[in-house]
């Protein structure tokens, strides 16, 4: 509790203060013709946007996100090992080395199959 009460308090202060700026903005700023259709257009350098809403997305970003999930989770597994490095037995180094090899093999596969490239 000594740890999490301060963090909750911090969250309260930070979210409260930033919400207050929204409220101040609401009070101070002018509001004219907010419903005017021209004002509500999607920005397209002054043109009418041909497809403002749903459209096809580039798949490469999805692939990068998958790569991220894989590698970030695997990196996270190293943290307990690193934090306890001094107290571990000699053979644990072998286990970690094997795990790292698997990670690197996956990395090489992702690299070779072009998953780390765009276009």
């Amino acid at each position: 509790m000594e740890t999490f009460i301060p963090i909750l308090m911090m969250a309260g202060v930070v979210f409260g203060a930033f919400s207050l700026t929204y409220a101040l903005n609401w009070i101070l700023a002018p509001r004219q013709n907010l419903k005017a259709p021209v004002k509500r257009e999607a920005f397209e350098c002054g043109n009418v946007s041909p497809d403002p809403g749903e459209r096809r997305r580039y798949i490469g970003f999805y692939l990068l996100a998958i790569d991220f999930v894989l590698f970030d989770v695997e990196i996270a597994f190293f943290y307990p090992w690193a934090a306890a490095f001094g107290q571990l037995e000699r053979q644990t180094l072998v286990f970690v080395a094997v795990f790292l090899m698997i990670l690197i093999a996956g990395f090489i596969y992702a690299w070779k199959s072009g998953a780390l490239e765009l276009e």
Binding site: N25, A29, E41
Partner: peptide, 12 residues
């Protein structure tokens, strides 16, 4: 200036 500028929301 940030505080006193109008905030609006696009239709979509």
């Amino acid at each position: 200036k940030m505080m006193s500028k109008e905030t609006f929301m696009p239709a979509h």
